[in-house]
Design a protein around this nucleic acid. Structure first.
Length: 691
DNA sequence: TGTCCTCGAGTTCC
DNA sequence: CTCGAGGACA
C-alpha cells in the first residue's frame, strides 16, 4: 500500500469556518459526528503512526467525507481538534513567538568511542554507582526539532526550537502533519503535556518531493532536513499540508504531573497517546551496550527510511537525571554519538581554473578544509562555467558540501544568507591560467578550452601523465612530480620524448638519485612491450578513451591500418560515429602526430594486438565491477576479463550480464539489483574466470 | 527527433 | 562520481 500523503492533503484543501451562534443541536447528529471524528482519527493513526491501516483508502475517504459534509452542514458540530480541521489557518505574514517553559537545549556530542566511555564513567562517579547504568539508546533523527504543547489533551501550541528558550509558533503547520495527534488518545494524560520530537521527511518522499519541485520549477532542497525545516516554516499551511512530513516523539518538556519513572516507560505512554516513536529505541547497559547499539545502527543506517546523524544515549531513570542535572550547555544525562558527518558547511576560498590534458578548463573550488564523511575535504570540482552559474556559487560563499556516493566531494548549494556583500559571480578567465593562451568556448559546448595544445605546459604535463598512466603505457614511477620537472626543464616536448630520456637527463632532476634513475629508465624501456589498445589510449586521440581504443584495435588490427582509414571506414568500427570518426581522421592527418607515432615506433614501442586467449564462458559477456576484491585489484580483474574476451563497462544497464561485487560496493550494486542483473561475489567470480 | 545508453574527461582523497 | 555529448535505435 502506498503512503499517499499528498493525495490526502489535497482532500483537506477546503476549509469551512465554524459557526459561533449557540443553537440547540440534534443529539443524534452530535453523537454521529463524535463517532466519525474518533473513527477518522483512529484510522489516521493506524496509517500514519502505526503504518498498518485496517481499512482501505476508499473506506477512509468515505468516513472523512461524511464527517466533512456533516460539519459543513452543521458548523457548530466541528471542534477545533476535528481531523477535518488540520488545515485551517490562512496564510500569515510572519510567525509568532513561542516561549519554551523548559528550555530546548542542545546535547553534548561525541564522535569517538572513548568519549562515550568517558561520559559514562563521569556519570557513574556522579551517581556513585558501581554497576552499569541503564540507558536508553535511540536514533538521532536529522530533521527539525519541535515542541508540542497539549492542554487538556488537545494540541494547543507547536514551536520550533529556535534559540532554545523561544522559537517560532508553527502550530498551523504542525497541525497538518498526520502523525501529530490533534487530541491525545486514551486517558491519564496530564493537564499540560509538552512533547518534544523531530519533524522529518522520509528519504524516498524527499526524492519525490525534489523531483516534483524540479518539474514545477520550484527550488530544490539540499537534503531531507532542509526540506523538513523549510516545510515547517511555510507561511501558508496549505503548502505544508502537501509536504510528506512525519513526526517522531523523543522527549518531554513541561508536564503538569509526572508521566513515568523511566524514559523508556514514558516513550511507551507517548505511543499509547497516539504518537509515533521510533521502533529502534532500546534500553542498554553501560557504555558497552551503548557502543554495541551504535555499531548496529551504523550498519543499518543506509537501509533505514529516515536520515540519521547519529544515536542518542539517555539515562533511563528520571530520578537519576534530576541528580545529574545540567552543565552550562547541556544535560549531563544525555549524549549524542554522531556518525562522521556526510555533509558539512564551509567557505569557498577561491575558484581555480584547472587545465586538463585536452585543454578543457575546469573550475575547481578551493575550500576551507572541512571534515566530511571521515576525511578532510579541501577541493571540489564545479565542472564548468554553466554549472557555476546554475549553482550560483561565488568566492567567499558559505556552501553545503557532501561526498557524492560517499566519495567525491560535491558542492550542493551556497547558503545565500551568508554571502558576503560584494561577492561577484565567477567568470572563466579569457586567457589560459597556465600558458596565457586564448580560451575559447565552442558554440553549443559547455566546456572552455585552451587552444595552445601541447605548447601549453599544463596540457603537456597532463598528456604525459596520461601516456604513462596505468591503463595506458603503464610506466610506474612516472608521476605528476616527475612530469612537472621534465616539462619545466624542457627535457620532454612530446610523448615520444619519454623514450629519449637518458640517465644524464634524469641527473638534472631534483630528488632522483642514480639508482632510482636507472630503475626508471628500465621501467620506461619495459613499457615498450605493450598492446595496441593501450598505445591508442595513450596517444590521447580526442574522444578515444579506453573502450574506443579497444574497439579500434580489434577492428583495424594495426596502427597503420587505423592511420590509413578514411572517415567512412572508421565509422564501420563499433561505437564510432561521425563525430568520433572526424576526430580520429583529423588526428592522423596531423604531421606532428604522425611524427610522434613514427618516433615511438622507432624507439622500439611494439604494440601487440591482444587476442582472446581461449574459449571461456565469459567471452562476449558484459561485466561491471564494484567494490574491492581480495585476490586482485579491480584493474587486474578488468584485464583478465578482457583477455578472456569479455567486456568491462563502468555503468550498469539492462544489457549488463554480470555485476561483480567486492567489499564496500558503491551505488552500482543497488542499480544491479534494480535491473535484476545477476551479482557475483568474489568466489563465484574466480570460479567463472577459471572456467 | 527523442530517448536511452555509453564513453570521455575531469576531479578527490588515502 | 558527475556532467556533457556522441552513438544506437525506435
Amino acid at each position: 500500500m502506498s503512503y499517499e500523503l499528498e493525495r490526502m492533503g489535497a482532500r483537506h484543501g477546503r476549509w469551512e469556518s465554524r459557526g459561533t451562534k449557540d443553537q440547540p443541536v440534534d443529539k443524534a447528529l452530535m453523537r454521529r459526528a463524535a463517532r466519525l471524528r474518533r473513527a477518522v482519527e483512529y484510522h489516521n493513526f493506524r496509517y500514519y503512526v502505526l503504518d498498518s491501516p485496517v481499512i482501505s483508502d476508499a473506506q477512509f475517504d468515505e468516513l472523512f467525507r461524511e464527517l466533512h459534509t456533516l460539519e459543513a452542514a452543521h458548523p457548530e458540530l466541528a471542534t477545533r481538534d476535528s481531523p477535518t480541521q488540520r488545515i485551517g489557518a490562512q496564510p500569515r505574514k510572519d510567525f509568532g513567538v513561542v516561549r519554551h517553559a523548559l528550555p530546548m537545549g542542545s546535547i553534548d556530542t561525541a564522535f569517538a568511542e572513548t568519549e562515550v566511555e568517558t561520559w559514562d564513567r563521569r556519570l557513574r562517579e556522579r551517581l556513585g554507582v558501581r554497576g552499569e547504568v541503564a540507558y536508553t539508546a535511540e536514533p538521532k533523527f536529522d530533521g527539525a526539532s519541535v515542541s508540542l504543547r497539549y492542554e487538556e489533551g488537545v494540541l494547543a501550541v507547536a514551536g520550533t526550537r529556535g534559540d532554545g528558550s523561544a522559537g517560532e509558533d508553527v502550530t498551523a503547520n504542525v497541525r497538518t502533519i498526520r502523525s501529530v495527534p490533534l487530541r491525545l488518545q486514551g486517558r491519564g494524560c496530564p493537564r499540560v503535556l509538552e512533547v518534544r520530537g523531530e519533524v522529518l521527511i522520509e528519504k524516498k518522499h524527499f526524492a519525490r518531493l525534489n523531483a516534483e519541485q524540479a518539474k514545477h520549477g520550484g527550488r530544490l532542497f539540499a537534503n531531507a532536513r532542509n526540506a523538513a525545516a523549510g516545510s515547517l516554516r511555510q507561511l501558508d499551511p496549505r503548502i505544508t499540508a502537501r509536504r510528506p512530513l512525519a513526526f517522531f516523539a523523543w522527549g518531554l518538556g513541561e508536564v503538569s504531573a509526572p508521566v513515568a519513572d523511566r524514559y523508556s516507560q514514558a516513550v511507551r505512554r507517548l505511543g499509547a497517546w497516539g504518537f509515533r516513536t521510533s521502533d529502534l529505541i532500546a534500553t542498554v547497559k553501560g557504555a558497552r551496550g551503548c557502543l554495541a547499539y551504535f555499531s548496529k545502527i551504523a550498519a543499518k543506517r543506509d537501509a533505514l527510511p529516515f536520515e540519521l546523524d547519529g544515536v542518542v544515549y539517555k539515562v533511563d531513570a528520571f530520578r537519576d537525571r534530576e541528580r545529574l542535572g545540567f552543565t552550562a550547555r547541556a544535560p549531563r544525562w544525555a549524549l549524542a554519538h554522531k556518525f562522521a558527518a556526510r555533509e558539512a558547511t564551509t567557505i569557498i576560498e577561491d575558484i581555480l581554473p584547472s587545465v586538463g590534458r585536452t585543454g578543457i578548463i575546469t573550475p575547481v573550488a578551493k575550500l576551507k578544509p572541512v571534515a566530511v564523511g571521515g576525511v578532510t575535504v579541501t577541493h571540489a570540482t564545479l565542472h564548468n562555467q554553466a554549472e557555476v552559474e546554475r549553482k550560483d556559487v561565488r568566492i567567499g560563499d558559505t556552501v553545503l558540501v557532501r561526498r557524492a556516493g560517499d566519495v567525491i566531494p560535491e558542492i550542493v548549494a551556497p547558503i545565500k544568507e551568508k554571502r558576503p556583500r560584494g561577492a561577484k559571480p565567477w567568470r572563466m578567465p579569457a586567457k589560459c591560467p597556465a600558458c596565457g593562451g586564448t580560451v575559447v568556448r565552442e558554440i553549443g559546448k559547455a566546456a572552455h578550452r585552451c587552444m595552445a595544445g601541447l605548447a601549453c605546459h599544463a596540457q603537456l604535463e597532463r598528456a604525459l601523465a596520461h601516456f604513462a598512466s596505468r591503463r595506458s603505457m603503464d610506466i610506474e614511477g612516472f608521476g605528476e612530480k616527475l612530469v612537472r620537472q621534465l616539462v619545466a626543464k624542457h627535457l620532454v616536448k612530446s610523448v615520444a620524448g619519454v623514450y629519449r630520456l637518458t640517465p644524464r637527463h634524469l641527473a638534472k632532476l631534483e630528488r632522483l638519485g642514480e639508482k632510482s634513475a636507472r630503475k626508471l629508465i628500465a621501467r620506461i624501456s619495459k613499457s615498450k612491450q605493450t598492446t595496441l589498445p593501450r598505445l591508442l589510449n595513450a596517444l590521447g586521440i580526442p574522444q578515444v578513451g579506453e573502450a574506443t581504443a579497444a574497439a579500434l584495435a580489434q577492428h583495424f588490427g594495426s596502427i597503420d591500418a587505423l592511420a590509413a582509414a578514411d572517415r567512412e571506414t572508421l565509422m564501420q568500427a563499433p561505437g564510432v560515429g561521425s563525430a568520433v570518426a572526424t576526430d580520429i581522421h583529423t588526428f592522423f592527418r596531423e604531421k606532428r602526430n604522425l611524427g610522434v607515432i613514427a618516433a615511438l615506433l622507432r624507439a622500439g614501442v611494439r604494440p601487440a594486438v591482444a587476442r582472446p586467449s581461449r574459449k571461456s564462458p565469459v567471452s562476449g559477456k558484459l561485466f561491471v565491477l564494484t567494490g574491492a576484491l581480495q585476490s586482485m585489484t579491480r584493474d587486474e580483474a578488468k584485464d583478465r576479463l578482457t583477455a578472456l574476451g569479455a567486456t568491462v563497462s563502468e555503468s550498469v544497464s539492462r544489457r549488463t550480464d554480470y555485476v561483480v561485487i567486492g567489499a564496500a560496493p558503491g551505488s552500482k550494486a543497488a542499480k544491479a539489483r534494480a535491473f535484476g542483473v545477476p551479482a557475483l561475489d568474489e568466489s563465484h567470480f574466480l570460479k567463472l574466470l577459471s572456467g
